[in-house]
């Protein structure tokens, strides 16, 4: 596990070689009836980069990352993920994109009829149908070790605490070693200590697997620990972008209000 002292906010360097955009959004729009959630979203993320998206509730942060993995179809604009247009791709290509992009849900979304081991095995078995059981076991143990919960493999999700569920959910998300991780409010509902542990874990995962991450959060401590870059979403569009320190000292009241 990584220690807090080792983490310097806003100084997490993305991988050197990597200027390739994993996600590219231009003029993306999404409405639900008369509610125009996303009006004009322009966004890119490079390999190995951690981007935190801040915004008030209901501004479309979750919709934004659900569009990236095709859970919600945007109404218009350009949305390229791993260089491919999500809006026009077939089911097979979309499935491939999804296995390269892990998604950590706000609720954890662990399958509650399965044990922790079965939860972790699930994405592996879907991707590698004929993988030997020994190799699957190794992957499961490695994923559990990454989140520090090696002894929970045979427990049911209902036997775990909120923080443990989030960790197991993260383990399930990283078991296929995705290139892009999408976190939907990873620290919501957790106590400050567990929140910090999860934030550190996010950073640790990024360093270990060189993943890019989009982190949706209201937790400013989490943003401080994990962000290379912060973007502020308001009324369907990004209104500010910068490092933690830059935005903290912003002259815009709305932007500054997130940091007080």
């Amino acid at each position: 596990m990584i220690h807090t002292q080792e983490i310097q906010a806003g100084t997490n360097e993305p991988a050197n070689d990597l200027n390739e955009n994993l996600v590219e959004m231009k003029g993306v729009k999404k409405s639900f009836g008369d509610n125009h959630v996303l009006k004009d979203i322009n966004f890119t993320i490079k390999k190995g980069e951690n981007v935190v998206v801040l915004g008030k509730s209901g501004t479309g942060k979750s919709v934004l990352i659900k569009c990236i993995v095709g859970l919600i179809d945007p109404d218009g604009g350009v949305l390229n993920v791993f260089g491919k247009d999500v809006l026009t791709m077939n089911d097979k290509d979309l499935s491939e994109v999804r296995t390269k992009a892990g998604f950590l849900f706000q609720s954890g979304a662990l399958y509650d009829s399965m044990t922790v081991r079965e939860n972790l095995e699930f994405p592996v078995l879907r991707k590698y149908k004929s993988k030997p059981q020994e190799e699957i076991d190794t992957l499961v143990e490695e994923a559990l070790a990454n989140v520090g919960l090696e002894d929970t493999a045979d427990k049911m999700p209902s036997e775990l605490s909120g923080g443990m569920r989030k960790r197991i959910s993260l383990a399930r998300t990283i078991i296929l070693k995705p290139e892009l991780l999408l976190y939907d409010e990873p620290t919501t509902g957790l106590d400050p200590i567990t929140s910090q542990e999860i934030s550190e874990l996010i950073l640790e995962v990024q360093k270990k697997y060189k993943t890019a991450s989009i982190i949706i959060t209201h937790d400013i401590k989490c943003a401080k620990i994990t962000a290379d870059r912060i973007m502020v979403l308001d009324q369907g569009a990004f209104v500010a972008e910068g490092t933690f320190e830059e935005l903290k000292n912003s002259k815009d009241d709305l932007v500054r209000s997130f940091f007080t």
């Binding site: 659900k66 999804r98 296995t99 609720s107 509650d112 009829s113 699930f122 994405p123």
Partner: peptide, 21 residues
Amino acid sequence: AELGSMKVTEQIDAMEVSGTN
């Protein structure tokens, strides 16, 4: 009840992003 519960706790979405129909 089972599928309804899976729906409201985003388990069906989680399945979809795991590359499963």
